[in-house]
Write a protein that binds this DNA or RNA. Structure first.
Length: 493
RNA sequence: GUGGCCAUAGUUUAAUGGUAGAACAGCGGGUUGUGGUCUCGCUAGCGAGGGUUCAAUUCCCUCUGGCCACCCCA
């Protein structure tokens, strides 16, 4: 209801708006010291005459800061970084591409809070995982609640699914989201404390084709960005068969426990499956003959897994059966997969992301039993691969017209003209803060403008502007009223 | 959390136990209102703290941050 809003903003009625243009245009201004509302011309006058106000003395409290200060300037918190305008083209490209393709596949965008109750993550990710035990940003808020910055997105989405009764929507529900995640880990290349993920979740279907579909989706997005990936895939089986396998593995390794590396001794107790992807050579030797997870799969899971692979074969997605893919979060079952760069599969932080099934998570968090499947892509890692491979994002065309002005009077007119041209759809840029024409033309050139519109004292008096062709240097005087038409004519060529 | 390497202008860098040059970028000029080349000028730096020394950007220690590997994961 835009009309109503307008009417409430100090304008008596729509009729008044039409009859009294000046009133509508007038910016509300308060004359210093009076509290009276003045309209434009009067206000300018009042401001000109008024005495400079005395600045209240602001005493700043000395801040207790341990962080390095360089000439009084703080640096960003460790593991956090700025994404500068110069780099934004990569981010925009990723986000646009991911969003477009996800929507084409019928996925809907959702945003969930960055903070959630700590217990949500404890119950979903798993109480004994490193992510929860060591890497979560936790704090108590002013109301005494234990809050955590989300270390991943799935838990929040599942919470929202349950909370809003989304099981009443047509199933499966196909969702995606992107945003920052937080983990307190030691920063390293490809690893930040605030990092960005693109997440996809499908809730309410057990079908193997869904597993394949999300893999295809991730693969397609990466491919569209120019990145070739290989999918490493495995099946963890049902929760029961997984527990069963853990016991088998435990029994197998028990006698050799002392030979394992220190980390694996730890893993043996905490998460024995992790021993499978230890990089230590000796551990690998020990594991080489160990019973495999695939052999412990229950019949249903095996059937499901085979079916997923068949679907992938059907669409020619390159995959590698990798029994070492076990995933770090507790909620996964059956299909688990990770995406690796096709050329350098052994790089340390080389996984772009991964995912799998989490058929019991919804129920575990208090919802009705709902099978689900999803994945996360690390946007930071995808972008660093794009840069490493020297892939250039599509460039946005530079504004074709640059607006230059000479003198104070012209500047006032230029501000108005800028808005007029913007509204008319003319791709325009300018820098009203600059004075010299020389500098402005220099900028126009740097920005790659095809035309410069020049307004000066002379043009102001004549009611004209100059249109300069930046390539040929030809200039033409055109009527102030016909600028849009003249520019449109020239830009269409 | 463990181990290793590193830290000079906004960026990339040079040299030095006696407080620092350069390139690019930025800003401003090269006659009053005309760019792309050229030319001149200006701005700007030893991450922080402590120690050794007559003197430290340079040597030592601590902190902070970055990078790399482990761990973990995205």
């Amino acid at each position: 209801m835009p009309h109503r809003i307008k009417a409430q903003r100090g304008v008596k009625s729509r009729k008044a708006m039409r009859t009294s243009k000046k009133t509508v245009k007038a910016v509300k201004n308060v004359k210093p010291g009076t509290g009276r509302i003045l309209h434009s011309k009067h206000a300018v006058h009042a401001v000109k005459k008024s005495k400079p106000a005395q600045n209240p003395v602001v005493k700043s409290e000395p801040e207790v800061v341990r962080r390095t200060i360089k000439k009084g300037v703080l640096q960003s918190v460790r593991g956090m970084r700025d994404i500068l305008p110069h780099d934004f083209r990569y981010w925009r490209w990723f986000k646009d591409t991911a969003r477009t393709i996800a929507e084409q596949y019928g996925y809907q965008e959702i945003d969930v809070p960055i903070v959630e109750d700590v217990s949500l993550f404890r119950r979903s990710i798993g109480d004994v995982t490193d992510v929860v035990q060591k890497e979560m940003y936790e704090f108590t808020d002013a109301g005494g609640d234990r809050i955590a910055l989300r270390p991943e997105a799935t838990a929040g989405i599942v919470r929202a699914y349950i909370e809003h009764g989304m099981l009443n929507l047509p199933q499966p529900l196909k969702l995606f989201t992107m945003g920052p995640m937080f983990r307190y880990d030691r920063p390293q290349s490809g690893r930040y404390r605030q990092f960005y993920q693109f997440n996809v979740e499908v809730l309410g279907s057990e079908a193997s084709v869904i597993d394949a579909e999300v893999i295809v989706l991730a693969y397609t997005i990466l491919k569209e960005l120019g990145i070739e990936t290989t999918v490493h895939i495995n099946s963890l089986g049902s929760s029961e068969s997984r527990i069963q396998y853990k016991k088998i593995l435990q029994a197998y390794l028990k006698s050799r426990k002392n030979e394992l590396c220190d980390d694996c001794q730890e893993r043996f107790l905490k998460n024995i499956l992790r021993v499978l992807d230890c990089k230590n050579e000796h551990c690998q030797q020990l594991i080489a003959d160990a019973p495999e997870l695939v052999d412990s799969l229950d019949d249903e899971s095996r059937k499901h897994f085979v079916s997923v692979l068949e679907h992938l074969d059907e669409v020619d997605i390159p995959y590698v059966l990798n029994p070492r893919i076990v995933r770090g979060l507790d909620y996964y079952n059956r299909t688990a997969f990770e995406f690796f760069s096709a050329d350098q599969e052994n790089g340390r932080q080389s996984a772009f992301g991964g995912g799998g099934r989490y058929d019991s998570l919804v129920e575990q968090l208090g919802g009705r039993s709902t099978p689900a499947c999803g994945f996360a892509l690390g946007i930071d890692r995808v972008i660093s691969a794009i840069r490493e491979q020297k892939i250039e994002p599509p460039t946005q065309p530079a504004p074709a017209v640059y607006l230059a002005q000479i003198g104070d009077q012209a500047r006032k007119r230029a501000l108005q003209l800028f808005e007029r041209l913007r509204k008319a759809g003319v791709p325009i840029s300018g820098n009203l803060a600059k004075d010299g024409l020389r500098q402005q033309l220099e900028l126009a050139d740097k920005k790659g403008a095809r035309f410069a519109v020049i307004v000066g004292q002379k043009e102001l008096i004549d009611g004209t502007v100059l249109i300069r062709d930046m390539e040929s240097g030809m200039q033409e005087t055109v009527d102030f009223k016909k600028i849009e038409k003249e520019l449109e004519k020239r830009l269409k060529i």
